[in-house]
Computed example of a mutant assay.
Amino acid sequence: MASMQEGRHEDTESSFTLPEAVVFEILTRAPLEALPACRWVCRQWRQITYEPAFTSLHCSRTQTISGYFIQSMRHNHYHSSFVSIQPLPPSVRPLSFDFLPRDVKIEAVGCRGIVLCTSQWYDGIPGRYYVCKPATRQWWWIPNPKTRYLTKRIAMVACSTGPLEYKIIRFSQAEQNFDCLRCEIFDSRSQAWRLSRDVQLPSGSLRQEAAVSVNGALHWLTYEGNIFAFDIHKETWKLIPLPEEVGEDEMRWDCRKLVKCEGQLCLVLVEKQWMEIWVMANYEEQIWEERKVVSLEAINYDPALTIEDLYLSDVAFMGSFFRVTWYDLSRGVLANICIDHPFAQEVFKFESDLVPLE
């Protein structure tokens, strides 16, 4: 599954050049599935596809859905809703999971609009694992892993082009061994789970949030002040230190967020009226660079405000009490949307086309 890995982009230029306006027009009409390959053509093409003006026009021209699933728990049941500042295509009804046989919890989101969900035990019926594409309302069951072990973290990685192939990586708590995570991997080609090597890391170390998939690895922040990275292909793991300047800060943990932006691993820090953005400029050598420091005075200090993601390099997606905010780091608030969740317990970035899965 080499196509699953998004590696380092080389600073190469194409052997011929087109006016940037022409390239922009072409790329805004490229299918969502083709964008990863377009970003490999040259530096110019990659930069264009990450421009703020590109996303809105590309969504409109290609009927691409771009936004976030917000998930929280009510009365012992999980509830999710979709939010976006991009209008949904006219032919698409509001995204939900009401087409699945049972109420579900979102576990992970992969590229191409596929989502991993699980249902809970109900009237003695065990829960099931589902893979679905909400934009086309397709779904199928997959075998359950050894669910007698409690899931601690789970992630999905899908190939970005060609026939749909994906892997699910699940870490669970082995009984009476709190310093060891059991690792199981599901491969869509074999339609089976298999055991990988255990991870010698306390189960409580990894923060409860969606994994960040960059450079062929899954990443989670730990409570010990570093990043846990699991290589999808080698099935090995390592700990990556945070930037020295922030590694020892005693700020609230909900003020730190690990995200992916423009194909790079990023660390976002929010403390009172300031936001810092750090980028891992060299993944192999683990070199961090401070990209920018931004004042948040325009939205006033809200103790409940949390950073959820970088929607674009200059647009932060933030959550607060019964609302979410898209905040342009240069121009101020782009949009506030009220949600029916007191707080977003989990947030999943979602991009999808309307092409049915075969």
Rank of each mutant, 00 (worst) to 15 (best):
F178A: 08
L354F: 13
H58D: 08
D314G: 08
P90A: 10
S81Q: 13
P87K: 02
Q191M: 14
C261Q: 09
T222I: 05
D98N: 15
F178C: 11
V41E: 04
F171W: 10
W274K: 10
A192N: 10
C42H: 01
I48P: 05
P36I: 03
I168A: 01
E351C: 13
E308K: 09
V22W: 05
V92W: 01
E290T: 00
G319Q: 07
P303I: 12
A2P: 12
K167W: 03
L18T: 06
D198L: 02
K152D: 11
I125N: 10
R128T: 10
R74I: 04
F24L: 08
R61N: 14
M156Y: 03
I307M: 00
S188E: 13
G247M: 12
L35R: 02
E224I: 08
L269H: 04
A344I: 10
G263V: 04
L357Q: 05
N144T: 12
S81G: 07
D103A: 14
F322P: 06
T136N: 03
Y130P: 03
T325N: 06
D314E: 15
D103K: 13
G110N: 07
K238M: 12
V324I: 00
D187E: 15
D353W: 12
D231A: 04
L116F: 13
F99Q: 02
R29K: 14
E244V: 12
I307N: 01
A217L: 06
E276S: 11
G247E: 11
W45G: 05
S330P: 04
F186D: 01
F82T: 07
E10F: 07
T236R: 14
G124C: 08
Y68W: 13
A316N: 02
W139Q: 01
P134K: 02
R323I: 02
E297H: 09
G162F: 08
V214W: 07
Y327V: 04
C180Q: 14
V270Q: 13
V22E: 01
W288D: 02
L305Y: 02
A229C: 13
G113E: 08
R331M: 15
P342S: 04
A158R: 00
L206R: 01
S72L: 00
Y283Q: 08
G162Q: 07
W140R: 15
R93K: 13
L206F: 04
F350C: 02
V315R: 06
A174H: 12
K238D: 10
V157L: 06
V83E: 10
Y311K: 13
T306Q: 15
V92N: 06
Y283M: 03
S330K: 10
R197E: 11
M156T: 10
E20F: 02
Y223S: 06
F348P: 05
E175Q: 15
S81V: 03
V355A: 11
V199P: 01
S60I: 09
C38S: 06
L357G: 00
W274T: 15
L32F: 05
F171K: 00
P36G: 05
Y50Q: 12
M73V: 14
